[in-house]
């Protein structure tokens, strides 16, 4: 594993600092609302917008604060009040995606950053026995498989966008991104792979959770919801379910931050990153973009090099 995620031992202090900072921002009127997490009914943090200093006391920061919050900014496009938001490393990529796509003005943001060495996957932790879960949340996990997938390769522990940092930046280790799942699929023969994909994607129920959570899916109106032209048929047929994902993956190609949230929230458990990772991998291999998951000022499909591989020779 290229990265060795761990749990921050000082999360409780960080949580206190977060509540204090959010309360300060709200009471001094620097922001009208602060986006963070509060504890959900099952103990797992859920997104929460605090609008008073008192509400800031409900904010939590713990090993399960996995959901990214940047997408919720789109609900606050109207108006001109300032919005506070808390991000860790990968959360800041989601935020930067929204900013680079010009979907929210930076000047309306106050970003509170938290360096992060790893977050647990709430679903994996939920599957543990009660005692085991308690131990894991208290003393940290023994099994690295309990972390979110993105933690296993994360090279962005520190927020790339922030106005305030709540703890010291962590050392950064860069490694060449690897895409083992794509490599595995590529190793299959084509018919086998087609069969595999068909079996998967016809399970989609088009609940759109993946689209809703994706920071790169930030259009005012999704083209796949449009009627004229009908980019995608409305019928509940395996063909259209699959096309939804095949088109969506291309639409976020070059802008995907590899957070894997789509996969995490998928209600039927589709391994959606197998599609997104394919593009990330090819963008590196074909165009030499070393870290394709980092939002850039120029997106790989919005530029070219005269010396790009030629298509006629290619395959």
């Amino acid at each position: 594993m290229p990265n060795n995620p761990t749990l921050d031992k000082n999360m409780t202090e960080t949580e206190t600092a977060l509540r204090r900072e959010a309360a300060r921002l709200l009471s001094q009127g620097e922001v009208a609302v602060f986006l963070g997490h509060e504890e959900g009914w099952d103990g797992v943090p859920v997104p929460f917008a605090a609008s008073t200093a008192a509400e800031a006391g409900r904010l939590v920061w713990n090993p399960l604060s996995a959901p990214h919050l940047a997408k919720y900014l789109l609900d606050r496009l109207e108006g001109d009040e300032k919005v506070g938001i808390v991000v860790n490393g990968c959360g800041s990529l989601a935020l930067d995606r929204i900013l680079k796509d010009r979907r929210f003005p930076r000047e309306r943001l106050h970003v509170v950053g938290i360096p992060c060495s790893g977050m647990l996957d709430p679903a994996r932790v939920a599957a543990l026995s009660d005692e085991e879960r308690e131990r894991v949340l208290k003393d940290g996990p023994v099994d690295p498989g309990l972390f979110l997938d993105r933690c296993s390769w994360c090279d962005v522990p520190n927020p790339v966008v922030s106005d305030t940092l709540l703890s010291e930046p962590l050392p950064v280790v860069r490694h060449r991104p690897e895409y083992p799942r794509v490599a595995e699929l590529e190793a299959m023969d084509r018919e086998e792979r087609a069969e595999y994909l068909r079996g998967l994607y016809e399970r989609c129920i088009r609940c759109f959770a993946c689209r809703n959570v994706c920071p790169a899916c930030n259009c005012r109106e999704c083209c796949l919801d449009q009627w004229e032209p009908l980019w995608l048929g409305r019928a509940t047929s395996p063909a259209e379910q699959q096309m939804f994902h095949f088109i969506r993956a291309f639409d976020v190609a070059g802008r995907c931050i590899r957070c894997g949230e789509c996969e995490r929230v998928c209600s039927v458990g589709l391994p959606l990153m197998e599609l997104n990772d394919k593009f990330l991998k090819d963008i590196t291999e074909l165009f030499g973009v070393e870290r394709p998951h980092i939002p850039a000022d120029v997106e790989p499909l919005g530029c070219f090099e005269p010396g790009d591989p030629d298509l006629e020779d290619h395959g």
């Binding site: 109207e78 796509d101 010009r102 979907r103 930030n218 259009c219 005012r220 109106e221 449009q226 120029v298 997106e299 919005g302 530029c303």
Partner: peptide, 29 residues
């Protein structure tokens, strides 16, 4: 304009510098 999200990723690919940002004002709620 009703569909445009204003991301302006269209701007860099235009060889004629024909695309610029424009502010529209509309009534929402």
């Amino acid at each position: 304009e009703a569909l445009c999200s204003g991301c302006l990723w269209c701007k860099p690919v235009c060889p004629y510098k024909a695309i610029e940002a424009r502010t529209v004002t509309e009534k929402v709620h």
